[in-house]
Each structure stands twice: as C-alpha cells, then as structure tokens.
C-alpha cells in the first residue's frame, strides 16, 4: 500500500481532530505539532476530511 501524506504546517492549528479519527493510529499530537507515522498509515484520507483547516492532503 502506498501513497503520499502531506500537512501544511502553516494551516495546521494542532487541534488533534485528525488524530482522533485515524483508524491506523498513524498520527500523534505532540508539542511540536502533528507527528505522522508513515509505517502505519494506510492513506485512507479520513484525517484529511476531518481536518477543520483543510491542512492535510492524502493521495493514494
């Protein structure tokens, strides 16, 4: 499974909404912002739809 996952750190407000819906536990909210765990990501795109700021882009 492959694809790309991108976050626009200027738009991201570190709210953690994406983390709460990630079915693969591939996202974490740390003090430095959203942390993406590539090995776990299934590129399903649920995080991108949830993001209130439209800061995440997922392609598969």
């Amino acid at each position: 499974m492959g694809g790309s996952w991108k976050i626009d750190r200027e738009r991201c407000l570190r709210c953690g909404a994406c983390v709460s819906v990630c079915p693969a536990d591939a996202l974490e909210l740390t003090e430095q912002g959203i942390f993406w765990i590539k090995e776990r990501c299934t590129f399903c795109g649920i995080c991108a739809k949830m993001c209130p700021a439209g800061a995440i882009e997922v392609k598969r």
Binding site: G16, A17, V19, S20, V21, E28, L29, K49, M50
Partner: peptide, 22 residues
C-alpha cells in the same frame, strides 16, 4: 479528543468519523 493514553490502555476510543464533528 486525541487521547493517546486511552488507546495505550487498550480501550476502544477511536472515533468513527461520522461521530466526530469538525
């Protein structure tokens, strides 16, 4: 809402996107 601790404790807390408003 992003609870990491709950997941680590093994509770099923992941939200279905239909049950989470943006």
């Amino acid at each position: 809402v992003e609870s990491k601790i709950g997941k680590m404790a093994g509770l099923k807390i992941r939200s279905n996107p239909q049950l989470m408003d943006s």
